[in-house]
């Protein structure tokens, strides 16, 4: 994600074309994820540790290549757009369809598409089979290794896209590690909370978006209702900055409680390497 943010902004600054930046950002995220794929799928390394290593390399690489980029100033950003017709809907129109970044609309479209793909199509079923019971999937003639590579790569593409969404549209610029501020990790929290359901993940993501907006708004005014606003001062403002992280922990607790009740949860084979002909751990 950070690598995507860096590459997106860097290419956009260099070429003046934000679309090219977006493309390179996605490819960079995808390439980095392939490193993770090789180590976990071929070398059967622990996926948590490999994920951490991926993070270290991604952060280090973006710091090295993004050196001096924070002073690069502004560049052409991805355009905002108002959907004709839909924006005329009362209340929802101005909120959802007026002058939003083009990527916001992509987010609207992607969620139903992914949900449909995973739950209603044959390749989506294969995806779930590989996640739940790889040896059964293998017996059905599904190439477990190839699918795992494919989806890790697609995940990397999307994470790179997410990074570019920040650096090229939402809060443009490059601020080293602060660009993403741990949002990739929050996303993991949201997925667990959503119990791997795209629609619930969408709701979770918008909740966090609202929280970020709220934090900005709370730091603005001098008076809150009839109290003097304590958050205007810099120091108490740090409590506001804790909120997204605290909320992540809270939704994880809520998510795991309901998961325990309903006996649903993570895909059974999550985190386990698959070796043909060997019993799972």
């Amino acid at each position: 994600m950070l690598l995507g943010a860096m590459f997106g902004f860097k290419v956009a600054v260099g070429t003046g074309n934000p679309w090219l930046g977006l493309l390179v950002a996605m490819l960079a995220g995808g390439m980095l994820s392939l490193l993770h794929a090789v180590v976990t799928i071929n070398f059967q390394a622990d996926q948590v540790v490999s994920g951490l290593a991926t993070n270290f390399v991604g952060i280090g690489l973006s710091l090295v290549l993004g050196e001096g980029l924070s002073k690069a100033g502004t560049t052409a950003l991805l355009p905002n757009w108002t959907v004709p017709g839909l924006s005329a809907i009362p209340i929802l129109g101005p909120i959802l369809f007026t002058n939003q970044s083009i990527l916001v609309y992509f987010g609207y479209l992607l969620t139903p598409a992914v949900a449909f793909y995973i739950n209603r199509t044959r390749p989506g079923m294969h995806l779930r089979a590989v996640g739940e019971y790889p040896s059964a999937a293998d017996a059905l003639g599904i190439n477990v290794y190839r699918l795992r590579y494919l989806y890790v790569f697609i995940g990397g593409l999307l994470a790179g896209l997410a990074g570019a969404t920040i650096s090229l549209a939402i809060s443009p610029g490059w601020f080293s590690e602060l660009t993403t501020a741990g949002q990739g990790w929050i996303a993991i929290g949201i997925v667990i909370f959503a119990q791997w359901n795209p629609w619930r993940a969408l709701a979770g993501a918008y909740m966090f978006g609202a929280l970020r907006r709220l934090i900005l708004d709370l730091q603005g005014p001098t008076m809150l209702l009839w109290f003097e606003n304590p958050f205007r001062a810099q120091s108490p403002g740090f409590f506001l900055q804790m909120l997204p992280y605290a909320l992540t922990i809270i939704i994880l607790v809520i998510g795991s409680r309901s998961a325990m009740k309903k006996r649903v949860g993570a895909p059974a084979a999550l985190g386990l390497p698959y070796v043909r002909g060997e019993r799972g751990r």
Partner: peptide
């Protein structure tokens, strides 16, 4: 310099 190199090396070592 740049400062990211040690972080990157650490990541590569871990990999």
């Amino acid at each position: 310099q740049p400062s990211g190199i040690p972080r990157m090396l650490q990541g590569i070592i871990l990999f």
